[in-house]
Amino acid sequence: MKKKIDVTRIIMGILAVVLFLCLWTLSTREGTTLGKLMPGPGEVFKRLLKMTHTNIGSLTIFGHMLNSLRRVLVGFFLASVCGILLGLGMGWNRKCEAILRPLFELIRPIPPLAWISLAIVWFGLGEGGKYFIIFVSGFANVTINVYSGAKAVDPEVIGAARMLGCPKHRIFTSVVLPSSIPYIFTGLQIAISSSWAAVVAAEMVRSTNGIGWMITAGQNINDMEQILAGIIVIGVVGFLLTTIMRGIEARLCAWSRV
């Protein structure tokens, strides 16, 4: 019974995508107004294939992708480490919370991308500024989630640990940290997608390579195929990043599912 439902779902899904592609092809066929502005899916796909072995600017599409990925991973890693530490600190230690929470709340309402200009002034046009933007984009998400996780630790469980002989100074590593893991992953999950969005934006504003640069470069030379190919790559990589995170989460947090 269940399998049958899945089949209709898949068929409907494929149908929807095919219909969408048909509509796209039809509306961009030669002679239409939209056709002058936009290439059809076939052309974009051909272009995408061509990009794998010819350079756009100075690199092939893989080169741009790797550059963007490197930026995301560096910034994301820094944001995760700082966010987890700050979140756990604020959630567990009241003094830490009293001191750092107001500063954090002051900075939090500023949208991450608003830091771009300041980042350029501080770090120049190189990699530093981009790492900084990605860091800012991920950091608040991780912190907030970890913070609420560390706050949500069940006092009964802490009591149980004490009752079983866990000394006070080890409660943190032995109870607070593991019980926050699902929250940490929620934070990381949000952070990875906003980091990916941030790298695209940062590269669009200032860069000489990367996927974000590729689409603005396409815009500058009025090359719609290049823009759309870039968007497809952005979508695929974004999807893969979140899927990988979800996979890791599913493995590490199996215990927290109801």
């Binding site: 009752m163 019980s179 215990w255």
Partner: peptide, 27 residues
């Protein structure tokens, strides 16, 4: 609280992130 007094809770307060073995060997 300390290990000389062991409490079994009304609704089990186990460590959800530890396996049966992990919970039992915790003390």
């Amino acid at each position: 609280p300390g290990p000389e007094c062991g409490l079994v809770y009304q609704t089990t307060v186990l460590f959800p992130w530890l396996t049966t073995m992990g919970n039992v060997e915790y003390g």
